[in-house]
């Protein structure tokens, strides 16, 4: 299996503070990879480096075959990204958002048109196409944002707490979209504070104080920590309780 992300001793410091401390890991093509850690563990900094938004202080990493230090612009073109905090423009309509992102990623007008129709149909929101995104329920927005992040057919999509605050039903519908994307060969790197969602990942890593302290399948990780569920693994690792 080929690796779509590969890091070696990746490090980022801010002054004296070491936010990311020599992390080395791989993400395989087509897997759902859970990137977990407590607040302040360094997840966001690592994600910023991997999405080409921040340069590492030392070490190296490649994403989709490109070097994060030398080719960040190439990386940005080939990845998708969504988070709860930033996803779509609330004061644009559904259709306008799709057109905007399609344009940013260099899709042709004809492609944008056909993809818009498919996307609206799939999410069953054709009737809402000309409504402002701000007027949609959060769950719909998140599903739409994810679909928009997939518009340019990226090989890998980064999802930063995509289901935070979403109702339990929509949260599951969202995960089915993730499964579906993975079944189509897309690699997904997901952060979440819902530990039940950690169970849905093929493999997970847990960051503690800038380092990756554990990386394995959820089942193997639970076995090696003698834990009932991922919540317990997380607590044992993050606080030693």
């Amino acid at each position: 299996m080929t690796n779509i992300i590969s890091t070696h001793q990746l490090t980022r410091t801010f002054g004296k503070f070491i936010a990311v401390n020599a992390i080395t890991f791989e993400v395989r093509e087509g897997e759902i990879f859970g990137f977990l850690g407590a607040n302040g563990a360094g997840k966001t900094t690592a994600l910023k480096i991997l999405t080409g938004l921040l340069s590492p202080s030392s070490g190296s990493a490649t994403v989709a075959g490109f070097d994060v230090k030398k080719q960040p612009e190439q990386i940005k073109r080939r990845i998708g990204y969504m988070s709860q905090k930033f996803s779509l423009y609330e004061d644009l309509t559904v259709r306008e958002n799709i057109r905007l992102y399609g344009g940013i990623y260099g899709l042709k007008m004809s492609e944008i048109k056909s993809k818009t129709a498919i996307l609206l149909e799939k999410l069953q929101i054709t009737e809402e196409a000309d409504k402002l995104v701000g007027s949609l329920p959060l769950g719909w927005k998140q599903k739409l944002a994810f679909s928009v992040a997939l518009l340019h057919e990226p090989k890998i999509v980064f999802l930063d707490e995509p289901t935070s605050g979403v109702d339990p039903l929509t949260r599951r519908q969202f995960w089915e979209l993730i499964y579906e994307a993975a079944a189509n060969g897309v690699t997904l790197m997901v952060t979440t504070h819902y530990m039940d969602e950690a169970e849905y990942c093929d493999r997970v890593s847990i960051m503690v104080s800038g380092k990756i302290e554990a990386l394995d399948t959820p089942r193997a990780m639970k076995a090696s920590f003698g834990a009932e569920d991922m919540d317990e693994v997380f607590r044992k690792l993050a606080r030693g309780v």
Partner: peptide, 13 residues
């Protein structure tokens, strides 16, 4: 009001 939102599982506990 939502003291746990955006907070990791350990801090929530």
């Amino acid at each position: 009001d939502e003291p746990g939102t955006g907070v990791d599982p350990v801090s929530r506990k």
